[in-house]
């Protein structure tokens, strides 16, 4: 697989863009019948204005939990155990509920995966879209409706004037997702968190939604945090990527560099298990085993059980996330050898 490096371009852009969201040392705990487990451990990243940051990982890796913690939408069984998440300098995790409500919508918009359950079935979409204006700007019902029509037009819903009174179930999946996006960007937030926004959608609709997100991001100079498990979507849409595994950040940096030259064996394994123009019938490289359960996360490196490079040091010592190149960080004892080796086998002692 060949990768053209986009290092220069993204590095150049990154420097120019102000940081909108800075997450540092975020820990999230979940209470379970078997005791408290750490679902997210020491997560940190920065989302910049006008750029897309992807949180990438498999189910249960903590990517959604991280985003929910930032958005203040954790389940009652989960709570933030430490760290900070600063939105333009103010820590979201230390806000009172009242302050948070003020921030929600106005500065931070969220798009969920399941558009049908995220919309209230008993209200017309126009009412739900206008709600943000009524709450935050004290707009009248008529004015809010007008704004709703404008929003619907902005996200590409045909005939918004006649459909503003329609109910969520009267829209297709793609259109419902557009409505959710419209709700999230209604007040032109600085940060948009999109949690698997296209997972439930077909490919052609996914392309439409991604186009829409991109144009909204550019229009509003928003920072977008895109949560996804799809490597190809990350490769196409994101500027920076945070690869998460078992609640920890495995690797992060500009997408082009990370995907072209991964510095963590997990990232490398993921990239190799994507069937990309591989010979029909040929065997795919696959990562053996499956991710550990949260309650059984091993001491030392979280990836040791599946890692082809694992050594004694990996079982004793958890690698810290450290800078491996300008703008890139990885949590692996062997990330330096990964930089030069072209295959994992070369590093085998």
């Amino acid at each position: 697989m060949t990768m053209t490096s986009t290092a220069e371009t993204s590095a150049g852009r990154t420097a120019a863009c102000p940081v909108v969201l800075r997450v540092e040392g975020l820990d999230v705990d979940i209470r379970t019948p078997a005791g408290t487990v750490r679902a997210v451990s020491n997560a940190g990243f920065e989302a910049r204005a006008g750029q897309t940051l992807a949180l990438l990982g498999e189910s249960g890796c903590g990517k959604s939990m991280t985003a929910k913690a930032v958005a203040g939408l954790l389940d009652p069984v989960a709570h933030v155990a430490g760290g900070s998440a600063e939105l333009e300098g103010r820590d979201l995790l230390r806000m009172t509920p009242k302050q948070r409500r003020k921030v929600a919508g106005a500065e931070l918009g969220i798009v969920f995966q399941d558009a049908l359950t995220a919309l209230n079935p008993v209200y017309p979409v126009g009412v739900q879209l206008g709600e943000a204006f009524r709450i935050h700007h004290g707009a009248s019902a008529a004015r809010a409706r007008e704004q709703a029509v404008q929003l619907m037009r902005r996200v590409g819903i045909p005939e918004p004037e006649s459909r503003v009174n329609a109910y969520p179930h009267q829209f297709s999946g793609g259109m419902r997702q557009r409505i959710l996006i419209a709700m999230a960007v209604a007040l032109s937030p600085r940060l948009l968190i999109a949690d698997e926004p296209t997972t439930a959608l077909d490919v052609t609709v996914q392309a439409q939604i991604m186009d829409l997100l991109r144009s909204l991001r550019e229009e509003g100079d928003m920072a977008v945090v895109l949560i996804t498990h799809d490597l190809a979507v990350v490769a196409e849409e994101a500027d920076d990527v945070v690869v998460m595994y078992a609640g920890t950040v495995a690797e992060q940096g500009p997408v082009g560099q990370v995907f072209a030259n991964p510095r963590h064996p997990y990232t490398k394994g993921l990239l190799e298990s994507v069937p990309v123009d591989a010979e029909r019938g040929s065997s795919l490289a696959s990562i053996p085993g499956s991710p550990p359960e949260l309650k059984n996360i091993p001491a030392g490196c979280v990836y040791q059980d599946r890692c082809p490079l694992a050594q004694a040091v990996c079982r004793q010592e958890r690698p810290v996330l450290r800078e491996v190149a300008p703008g890139r960080r990885a949590a692996c004892h062997f990330s330096d050898s990964l930089a030069t080796a072209s295959t994992l086998e070369e590093i085998q002692p």
């Binding site: 697989m1 060949t2 186009d211 490597l231 190809a232 196409e236 849409e237 995907f259 994507v274």
Partner: peptide, 16 residues
């Protein structure tokens, strides 16, 4: 429309 991991495989202009 299907997203591609490899930038070289991406169409110059996507049909949406």
């Amino acid at each position: 429309a299907s997203p591609k991991l490899d930038p070289a495989a991406r169409p110059a202009e996507r049909i949406v």
